[in-house]
Measured scan of single mutants.
Amino acid sequence: TDVTFHVNGRNLHLKGADEELLRRIEELIRRGADIEELEKAVKEWEK
Rank of each mutant, 00 (worst) to 15 (best):
G16I: 06
I35E: 01
H13C: 07
I25D: 00
T1L: 14
L28M: 14
L22Q: 04
E39N: 06
G16R: 07
N11I: 15
I35F: 15
D18L: 02
N8D: 10
A17W: 05
A17K: 03
G32V: 03
R23Q: 08
K43H: 13
A41P: 01
K43L: 12
K40V: 13
I25E: 00
L22S: 03
R24G: 06
R23E: 07
E27D: 13
D18Q: 07
N11W: 14
E20Q: 13
I25T: 01
A33D: 04
F5R: 14
E26P: 03
G32D: 04
W45F: 09
L22Y: 04
K47M: 14
L22D: 00
W45I: 04
D34W: 05
E27A: 12
T4Q: 09
L12G: 00
K15W: 06
H6I: 15
K15P: 04
E36T: 06
I29T: 01
L28R: 04
E46A: 12
I35W: 13
L21M: 08
K47A: 10
E26N: 08
E36C: 07
D2T: 05
E46K: 11
E26Q: 08
R30D: 09
E37N: 06
K43P: 02
T4H: 15
D34Q: 10
V42P: 00
V42M: 05
A33L: 09
A17Q: 03
N11A: 15
H6T: 10
A17Y: 06
L28C: 04
H13G: 01
D34Y: 06
T4S: 14
N8F: 02
R24W: 14
H6C: 15
L21A: 03
R30G: 11
R23W: 06
K40N: 11
N8K: 05
E37W: 05
E27P: 01
K43V: 12
E36D: 11
L28E: 04
L38C: 10
E27M: 10
E27K: 07
R10C: 13
R31M: 13
R24H: 14
R31C: 10
A17E: 02
K43G: 11
I29F: 07
G32I: 02
E20N: 14
E46D: 13
D2W: 05
R30H: 11
L28P: 00
V3Q: 04
I29N: 01
A33W: 10
L12A: 00
K15M: 07
R30K: 12
N11R: 06
T4F: 06
E39I: 14
E20I: 11
L21C: 05
K47N: 11
H13K: 06
K47D: 11
D18V: 06
I35Q: 02
G16D: 10
E20S: 12
A41Q: 11
E26F: 08
R30F: 09
I35S: 01
E46V: 10
V42I: 11
E27Y: 10
L22I: 15
K47E: 11
D2H: 03
V42G: 02
D18F: 02
L22G: 01
V3I: 13
G9A: 01
R24M: 12
E27N: 09
E36A: 07
G32Q: 05
R30M: 11
L14N: 00
E37C: 07
L28F: 05
E36H: 07
E44Y: 08
N11P: 13
E20Y: 11
L38A: 03
